[in-house]
Amino acid sequence: MAEKRQAVVTPGLAGLRALAHPTRLRILSHLRIEGPATATTLAARFGLNSGATSYHLRQLAEHGFVVEDEQRGNARDRWWRAAHQETHTRSADARTREERQVADAYWQAAAVLYAENIQAAMGERPLLPAAWRDASTVSDWVYTIPAERAAEVVARVKEVLASYDDEPGAAAAPFVFQIQAFPVPGHVEPSP
Rank of each mutant, 00 (worst) to 15 (best):
D69F: 12
R45L: 06
N49M: 04
F182G: 09
F175S: 08
P174Y: 07
H84T: 10
T23A: 07
P11G: 06
S29A: 11
G64C: 09
D165E: 13
P185V: 00
R32F: 04
Q71C: 00
E124I: 00
E70S: 10
A52K: 08
L19K: 01
R100P: 02
S163H: 05
Y114E: 12
V184S: 02
A131W: 08
T41R: 06
Q119I: 07
Q101T: 12
Q180A: 12
G47L: 08
A75C: 01
I27G: 01
D134M: 09
V154T: 10
E189K: 11
L128I: 04
L127Y: 09
E148F: 03
I179L: 15
H56I: 02
S29R: 14
A18E: 10
F175Y: 15
I179Y: 01
E3K: 14
A61R: 10
V112E: 08
M122I: 05
V8E: 15
H84R: 05
V142F: 02
I27V: 13
G51C: 01
A115G: 13
E34L: 03
Y55N: 12
R125Q: 09
A131M: 06
D104H: 09
R17D: 12
D134Q: 15
L31V: 00
A39P: 05
T38L: 09
R81P: 00
L48N: 11
N74Q: 07
E99Q: 13
T87W: 00
V142A: 10
N117Q: 14
A147W: 07
H63L: 03
N74R: 07
Q119S: 11
H56T: 03
G47Y: 07
A20S: 13
S191T: 13
A94I: 08
R32A: 04
T96N: 04
A151Q: 15
A162M: 03
E116C: 02
V153H: 11
Q178S: 10
I27D: 01
S163A: 12
T38A: 07
A92T: 15
G12V: 05
E99M: 05
K4S: 13
P190E: 00
V66E: 01
D69V: 10
Y164Q: 07
M1H: 13
T53R: 05
F182D: 11
W132T: 04
S29Y: 12
S91R: 15
D140A: 13
A131E: 14
G64E: 11
V142W: 03
Q180S: 11
A162F: 05
G169S: 02
A130E: 15
V66M: 01
A37I: 03
I145W: 05
T41S: 14
Q119V: 12
A43K: 10
Q71D: 09
Y143K: 10
A109T: 07
W141R: 13
V176D: 11
L113H: 13
E124M: 06
Y106Q: 04
K4D: 11
A155P: 01
L57N: 03
A162Y: 08
